[in-house]
Nucleic acid binder design. Structure first.
Lengths: 125, 125
DNA sequence: TGTCATTCAATGACGTGTCATATAAGTTGG
DNA sequence: CCAACTTATATGACACGTCATTGAATGACA
């Protein structure tokens, strides 16, 4: 039934959950109030900022986050409407989309990343 | 700007996210398909099962999970409607609620816990 | 080339979480 | 004992994520 190993697994799991929710919540609230974007939006910005060179990225980005394809699509839509990224269709495969930070997006990312890293440091100690 | 320490923090964070989503997703799908309850429902069942003695537990349970009070209330509502727990109002403080597993709840929890522990083991290795 | 399958992204219906608030019960100070 | 405050839970509006599906482009191959 409830072996000691089971208990230890459950403890470990709850600890992950706690860390995850505490950290995600803190970052989300901070970004929301200071920059009007949520954590998921920032995470996409961050991925785009990291890969300012590759092409046709929408798909590849999806592979680097636990987000669903559908979730990605909606987040990118919000970022686009907020004027932080722009979508360009790929020359060689017109199904794919190529993402780029706008100047506003780049500026916001620069600021927000500082906050983001600081809160990670504070919460993952 | 992006110090090595920053990068390491971000890596660590993404790793937590990945583990969290992979594990939660696996458990949620399994419980959903085999027992018709989601992960959050199970987690409340699990907490109630653990504390089969204390009184007025709704509040205390809230302190042992990152869930919001409002979320708790709704999850418990679903569990109640599904006939897995029952709510009894407290004699000494009629604002508080006292939760109890029903027989069905206890039986389901017993089965589901096995699945839950197995998936934790598989994912948190 | 014409069909059939596959891949990329977007969308609508839906469930569940959050915030703000409501309701009800308890507490405290005059 | 009554106002004002606090605490425990429930609820409604709303935001966001998921699943299933669609539309469009590509690929594979007879």
């Amino acid at each position: 039934m409830a072996t000691p190993q089971d208990r230890q697994l459950v403890e470990q799991w709850r600890s992950i959950q706690t860390t995850y929710f505490r950290t995600a919540g803190a970052i989300d609230r901070a970004l929301e109030s200071r920059f009007n974007i949520g954590l998921t939006e920032f995470e996409i910005l961050d991925l785009v900022a990291e890969s300012e060179d590759a092409a046709c990225r929408m798909k590849q980005l999806g592979e680097r986050t636990p987000m669903t394809q559908s979730a990605m699509s909606k987040v990118v839509d919000r970022l686009d409407k907020a004027g932080l990224v722009s979508r360009h269709s790929c020359e060689d495969d017109r199904r794919s989309l190529f993402l780029e930070l706008t100047d506003a997006g780049r500026a916001l990312h620069r600021e927000a990343a500082i906050e983001h890293r600081a809160l990670l440091k504070e919460n993952l100690a």
